[in-house]
Design a protein around this nucleic acid. Sequence first.
DNA 1: AGTATATTACGATAATAGTCGTATGTCAAC
DNA 2: GTTGACATACGACTATTATCGTAATATACT
Lengths: 134, 134
Amino acid sequence: MPPKRTETESVPPLPTAGELDILAVLWRLGPATVREVHEAVNKEIGYTTTLKQMQVMLDKKLVIRSERFRSHVYEAGIPKGQTQSRIVGDLLVRAFEGSAARLVMGALSAKPASKGELNEIRRMIDEFEKGMGR
Amino acid sequence: MPPKRTETESVPPLPTAGELDILAVLWRLGPATVREVHEAVNKEIGYTTTLKQMQVMLDKKLVIRSERFRSHVYEAGIPKGQTQSRIVGDLLVRAFEGSAARLVMGALSAKPASKGELNEIRRMIDEFEKGMGR
DNA sequence: AGTATATTACGATAATAGTCGTATGTCAAC
DNA sequence: GTTGACATACGACTATTATCGTAATATACT
């Protein structure tokens, strides 16, 4: 069994699939209420299910929230890029032997990219190379 | 809840985290016994745990197996590239709005790649572009 | 104040994943 | 043919995730 998870972790655990869907909505909308998130995720689940999930995420520090006269407003507890990077990093070692090239291969064969997007990836790599060693 | 999973699916479900670890070992070793897999995964769990997991995976069609005089020999039930692609594809839509470029960004910031690997990715993209529309 | 409506808190339940113990089976070597 | 070393089958238990119902709370509108 994975080590028992306490609520006092410095770094939050990776989000589960359902939690990631909620995070993705928060990334897209910015700070939002449970109601707004619930409508945006667009799954066939009840409102209180979304609510409960977000409460659990609060406990895990995956989101933070603030009062707003009537309801709560939630936002991601960790910067989007950092979470994305942790998730991909995990997948990278688990399924791709740490090879980013193979991961890109997998991504492209899963969802063929347009020429424009291929160029975007190229630019990204160039950028990254320029910033290396710093 | 996700739709109840029957054992008669045409396409297997995505592997769970633990299952992926086992698949990764099978990809690395090729056909292997439970014992071999168990030693390779190198986790602090009992032998029968690995065994049970692989039996569940067999039921899900994530692996296939054949008799071999004394024990069973397992291998991946689906080509490695296809499974990798399905996993990344899922992540792509869930966490990266379908943008491969952002995914690459996430991968590079998770585990900085060497110049050699960056070139490898470039070659991969070139290859992919050449083969487009076919 | 009193009712209606929306929100939150929280416990109960169910489904899935992970874990292991024990029984049973198989083979080889004595 | 008995014994020892492994293997498999399978049920049970635990932890986690997902789901929802209900009660309590807050706000708004008469």
